[in-house]
């Protein structure tokens, strides 16, 4: 059975996969895009189609998520534009470094090690903070509910240090903070450098950087990061689409599913004690880094089956975390009992 020339079973599978990704995206504010491209590659799609369709999906998802954060007053447009400028410059320099590594034949090795190290490092950092503080501090992704002013008070020490450098011009950011323009551009440049070097969107680098290095309250960091992804994802997918690499039969059902999943994930943030789940997110990033390492090893020793193992680890980790979110939400709703005041799902 076909719909618009595409098998209904394929549309349903992509929509289901989209719900899973959207749940993570809606709950944590990041963590969706790195699932799509590897999955499409393992399914046998050409690399350019997998990357282009993944980017177009990220563009659509970020549009929806940015609109939601805009409604909640969690997007700092001025900061977003500055981040776009700094990140773009960083990406260009990162690409130059990558081309240099390609010329001397070390690109694949260095990029793979850096990617695994970074993903694993952030995973360890978030997990360690979650376990150490037993719910205090660390990256909280409870962006939907947290009050911006309240969140601004929970600034990491390193961010306070950066904010203490009064190199003019200073600019105000949401949450009533003042930060040097040069510090913002510096952090944006550094995260762009990593993005260009690693060839990834960079959301999982930029969002923690906005919080830990600049001190942007988490809800605003998530909203502003998403605003930036609208542009980077839009431009990236447009460039790939010019070569005919974007496949709407993949993007349309994925987006339909993820938009629903993102609603459910966002609703869950108002129910679940997010600190309970934070440790799972750190573990998911860690498993993600292991999955990338497995895939790279499979490439080196020419064992394609390790690609499937890699995907199974990523999808398994995603299902584990999203399952934990859903179960915790339902448990919390049941604990509220029939007499509780009806709470909006959003």
């Amino acid at each position: 059975m076909e719909l618009l020339g595409v098998a209904v079973s394929m549309l349903a599978m992509f929509a289901g996969f989209g719900v899973l990704i959207g749940l993570l995206f809606g709950f944590f504010g990041m963590g969706g895009s790195f699932l799509v491209t590897p999955a499409l590659l393992v399914m046998g799609y050409r690399t350019d189609v997998a990357v282009a369709s993944g980017l177009a999906f990220v563009f659509g998802t970020s549009v929806i998520a940015t609109l939601k954060h805009r409604d909640l007053g969690q997007v700092d447009y001025k900061l977003g534009v500055l981040m776009i400028a700094g990140t773009t410059a960083g990406i260009e320099v990162g690409k130059i470094g990558l081309h240099w590594l390609q010329d001397i034949g070390l690109a694949n090795t260095v990029v793979s090690i850096a990617y695994v190290g970074l993903l694993g490092g952030i995973g360890v950092f978030i997990t360690y903070n979650a376990l150490k503080s037993d719910g205090e501090g660390g990256v909280s992704h409870d962006a939907e509910d947290m009050d911006v002013e309240e969140a601004a008070e929970d600034i990491p020490d390193i961010a306070k240090k950066i904010q203490s450098y009064n190199i003019p011009p200073m600019m105000g950011i949401k949450g009533g903070l003042k930060v040097s323009l040069w510090m913002i551009l510096g952090v944006a440049f550094a995260t762009g450098l990593l993005s260009g070097f690693l060839g990834v969107g960079g959301g999982f680098i930029r969002m923690p950087a906005l919080f830990y290095l600049i001190g942007v309250p988490v809800p605003v960091a998530v909203g502003t990061d998403l605003f930036e992804i609208v542009f980077s994802g839009g431009i990236g997918s447009f460039l790939y689409a010019m070569d005919g690499a974007v496949d709407l039969a993949i993007v349309a059902p994925l987006l339909a599913g993820s938009a629903l999943g993102a609603r459910l994930g966002a609703a869950a943030t108002s129910l679940v004690e997010e600190d309970d789940i934070k440790v799972y997110f750190g573990i998911m990033l860690l498993l993600g880094s292991i999955a990338v390492a497995v895939r790279e090893i499979g490439g080196v020793i020419e064992m394609p089956v390790l690609d499937v193992v890699s995907l199974a680890i990523i999808v398994g980790a995603a299902m584990l975390v999203s399952g934990a979110v859903v179960v915790s939400s339902i448990r919390e709703l049941r604990a509220q009992g029939p007499t509780a005041t009806a709470q909006s799902a959003d």
Binding site: V6, G60, G244, D247, L248, A252, A259
Partner: peptide, 28 residues
């Protein structure tokens, strides 16, 4: 899908990205 399998070039790319944008807004 939507007869856009062979869409390429600036116009084709703009149409494709436009469709994704419209779908995102409708879903929202």
């Amino acid at each position: 899908m939507f007869g856009l399998e062979n869409a390429a070039g600036p116009t084709g790319a703009a149409i494709l990205i436009g469709i994704v944008l419209v779908e995102a807004l409708l879903l929202y």
